[in-house]
């Protein structure tokens, strides 16, 4: 029983990380209508940036915030200078651009930081929770993921900028007709997604070690999470992430074994896509004409 509970708690902790990456995917999808296959690699790259800052002697908290800021600017620049040119390109071209970014980030990270695994610190590693059920870092992950969700919810619900971004996601042409500078809003969406990804990277690195390939597996779980929750729904991404995290842990421990855990994600992806493409919370707009 304790074992089962332990698996569930662990699942929730990793699930929170999947949820954060899935949030980044959803953010990107909502602002551009595309699924960013390079999201995981961008997150990995941001995490290396954080590692470098910490290695230079910056305190964790400062490095965390600086990394988020750098990722934000980087994401915006990427949209302005690369993605922007493919705004009206056919889907295959856009997918190829994402693949190019995937390869590019992966290679540049390997080139700068080398293939050797690096330790990434957790700010709470010295604390004990007083129970074997949940570690301090798991609690930290949960708290950060929860705080981020609230922040994003507030941003989209209550700020003018958030309203603009939702408008652009909903109808780009009408957005221009009310005077919104759509291209900047898209860049903003990219920046935001990149920052969210950076947070996810910094949360997961203490659990996996830092390495250029650290995100490839996690990306698959994040896909599953985003799709399960509904690829356009931020709360859906969170629920999807937690469900996928727990399912992965329980099925891995009791049913399919650790070797097939990734296939669980694959099966979720395919099943959701085929039977419920809008996911759990994805919006089905009622339109009357």
């Amino acid at each position: 029983m304790d074992q089962l509970l332990h698996q569930v708690v662990n699942g929730l902790a990793t699930g929170a990380i999947y949820a954060v990456i899935a949030l980044a995917l959803v953010m990107n999808f909502n602002s551009t209508g595309h699924i960013n296959f390079a999201q995981g690699e961008m997150a990995m790259f941001s995490t290396y940036v954080a590692w470098t800052l910490i290695a230079m002697g910056m305190p964790y908290g400062v490095a965390f915030l600086v990394t988020v800021a750098i990722s934000f600017v980087g994401g915006m620049l990427l949209e302005r200078f690369v993605l922007h040119r493919f705004r009206n390109a056919p889907l295959l071209s856009v997918v190829v651009v994402f693949i190019a970014l995937f390869l590019g980030f992966n290679a540049v990270a390997g080139w700068i930081w080398g293939p050797v695994l690096k330790d990434f610190p957790s700010p709470v590693s010295s604390y004990k929770t007083g129970t074997s059920l949940v570690g301090a870092h798991e609690l930290f992950v949960g708290a950060v993921a929860g705080a981020m969700l609230l922040l994003l919810y507030g941003f989209f619900r209550f700020t003018t900028l958030g309203l603009k971004m939702r408008a652009v996601a909903c109808n780009p042409t009408s957005s221009r007709l009310v005077g919104i500078r759509v291209s900047w809003t898209l860049a903003l969406g990219w920046g935001l997604a990149a920052s969210i990804g950076a947070v996810a990277g910094m949360l997961i690195a203490p659990l996996t070690f830092l390495d250029p390939h650290m995100m490839t597996g996690i990306l698959l779980y994040a896909f599953a999470a985003a799709l399960l929750g509904g690829v356009d729904s931020p709360p859906g991404a969170v629920i999807g992430g937690l469900v996928v995290g727990v399912a992965e842990n329980l099925l891995g421990a009791y049913v399919v074994g650790a070797e097939l855990k990734m296939s669980v994600a694959l099966v979720i992806v395919v099943l959701v896509l085929v039977y419920r493409p809008q996911g759990i919370l994805g919006r089905v707009t009622v339109r009357r004409v």
Binding site: I35, F37, V95, T216, G217, L219, L220, F223, A224, L227, M262, S263, A265, L266, V269, V270, L273
Partner: peptide, 10 residues
């Protein structure tokens, strides 16, 4: 693309 990418990952 996403489903096949997932297949490749797994």
């Amino acid at each position: 693309a996403l489903a096949t990418f997932s297949l490749a990952l797994a």
